[in-house]
Structures are given as C-alpha cells and as structure tokens.
Amino acid sequence: MKNKSILLFLFLGLFAQAQQKLMIDNQEVVRIETELASDKMEGRAIFSPGIDLASAFIEDEFKKIDLSYFKDLKNFRQEFDVKGKAANNVIGILPGKSKADEYVIFSAHYDHLEMEKEGVDKIYNGANDDASGTTAVIALAKYFKELNQNERTIIFVAFTGEEVGGFGAKFFSEKMDPNKVIAMFNIEMIGTESKWGKNSAYITGFEKTDFGTILQKNLKGTDFNFYQDPYPKEQLFYRSDNARLAAQGVPAHTISTSKMDVEANYHKLSDEVSTLDLDNMTEIIKAIAISSQSIISGEDTPSRVKK
C-alpha cells in the first residue's frame, strides 16, 4: 500500500508539472509572434496605423485572457499625448489575493521603427525587437491567469514609444507608487540564442539587486540559467523601459538574449520571424514564469536598487 501511495504521489506531481508546461504553448507563442511581426503591422512605429493594429491585437488578447483593467481605466488602453500626438500603452492586471497592494510587473515595448519610403522590403518587422518580448508578456498573462495563484497583483504592460525616447514607460512610471512595486520583469529581444546558447538569458543590472539570484534559485533543477549582462559598456540597464522605475529604487530589470556585439538583424529590415528560434523562445518564457513564482507568491521580495 505504501509503494502504491508513493507511486500515486509521483504520478500526480508529474501530471501537475505537465499541466503547467502546457500553459505556455509553443503554437500560441508562434501565433502571437507571427501576428505582431506581420507585414500588415507596417513596423509598429509610434503614431502609425500599424501600431494601432498592434494595440488592438494586444487588447484583444488581454480581453480573451480575461484580465482586469488598470486602476481607473475603462479599457486596456492607457492613453497620453506625445508632443500633441495621441499614443497609448496597453495594460491588463491580475488582482492579487492576499497582497493586492504589492505589484509585480511584466513588460515589453510593442513599438518599433518607421517604414522605408522605397525598396523591395520597406518594413522593419521588429520580430525580435520587441515583438518577442510582447509575445512573452501575453503568454505570461495567460499562464498566470490559468494558474490563479498570485498573492501579489500582476501588471502586464506593453509600452509604446520606447524606440523614440521611452515615452510610454515614462508616462506609466509617473502613475505608479514605486514603493508598491516589488519587481519589474522587462523583456526585450529574447528571440535569438544568447552567447551561451539555448536555455539561457541575461539580466541587466544583475549586480544591483538580488533579483537575479532569486530567479536562479527558483530554477534549481532545470537546465536554464540566467547570467549577468555580458555587455556592460552598452549600459543596457539604462536603455530600456525598466530604467524609469529602477531610477526610483525598484528592482526593475530587463531580461534579454540579444548578442549586442554581433546581433545581425538589430534595427534592420531583416528582423523577421524567420530569423528567430521560437522553440528556444518558448523555453525562455517558461523559465521566466517558473523563476518569478516566489516573487509573485510573496515568498521573496528582491532588494531595492540604491538611488
């Protein structure tokens, strides 16, 4: 009887793990990434018809997942002006159970570059930069909604205007109380393998908090590894949408795999879905989900960035 009980326990454990793995599905990652980086989005430049299409797509995904609206918004759009022109972030939330006033943010920017005026290929599809990160945010929203175990409130946000000065992140950050933000997982360019190969990524500003150490602890027993940013001269910690909240002390970091010294398609017309490793990208999204669990549950609270 004892042996049967042990076997049943092991079976249930493996079944539970399998169920969790199914929540982040490769086919869904491919579907979302392919849509965001499609030619009809025309590069997703801020103020363009293409970015309006991208925003509508993300809003529809958040609606299907059944996320809640952010603060006093009436929909998923956080609207603001940039030099007299209309722009918007897309935000959805999962309210926390026991620690609703403590926030964990998953973010990426969904804007990219303007089209060229002539040429056979005129569209900067931005498949890696940053449709890959936006795809991750949507996939993680679905995962955590289905898991339904978040003690802290989770905010999922797709920023606009990163490529032209970080306007979306600036507006969003000004609306947040940094003392209530426990951590920010900003996801930027995860569609290609890192310098260490598959099942790996790096965290900008790794040494500034114990955020990365917590993530790696939660990945113990897996094949995945997070590393320190190998491109310190690039100052990547200050060049993405995490920087605004990090400046206010929030352990806000960017997760990336981009080989900044040799990334062949960075800000080029060739940044298309066909250049990405979508199987590896799916594994990275799974690793982010697993590694964030103790922060979302309230078990771990990363140390703050020194101002």
Rank of each mutant, 00 (worst) to 15 (best):
K4G: 09
L7Q: 05
L7R: 04
F9I: 10
F9D: 07
G13E: 01
F15D: 11
A16E: 08
A16N: 10
Q17V: 14
K21G: 08
M23I: 03
D25T: 09
Q27E: 14
V29Y: 10
E35G: 03
L36R: 04
S38D: 02
K40C: 05
F47E: 06
A56Y: 13
I58D: 04
F62L: 06
K64S: 14
D66W: 08
S68G: 03
D72R: 10
N75M: 11
Q78W: 09
E79C: 03
E79M: 04
A87Y: 02
N89H: 15
G92R: 07
K97I: 14
A100Y: 01
D101E: 11
E102Y: 03
Y103A: 02
I105H: 06
I105C: 05
F106C: 09
A108F: 12
D111S: 09
H112P: 02
K117N: 14
K117M: 08
I123K: 00
I123F: 07
Y124G: 07
N125H: 13
S132E: 01
A136L: 04
A139G: 05
L140T: 05
F144A: 10
L147F: 11
Q149H: 10
Q149A: 06
N150P: 03
R152P: 00
I155D: 09
G166S: 01
S173H: 15
N179W: 01
V181Y: 13
F185S: 01
N186Q: 06
T192Y: 08
K195L: 08
Y202S: 03
E207N: 06
K208E: 14
K208N: 06
K208R: 08
D210E: 04
F211P: 02
G212V: 03
T213S: 10
K217Y: 03
N218G: 13
L219D: 12
G221R: 10
D229E: 09
Y231M: 06
R239M: 06
R239Y: 07
D241N: 03
L245F: 04
L245P: 07
Q248F: 12
K259C: 01
K259H: 08
V262I: 11
N265P: 05
Y266D: 13
H267L: 08
H267G: 07
K268N: 05
E272S: 12
V273E: 00
S274M: 12
D279R: 08
K286L: 10
I290T: 00
I295E: 07
S297T: 06
K306F: 06
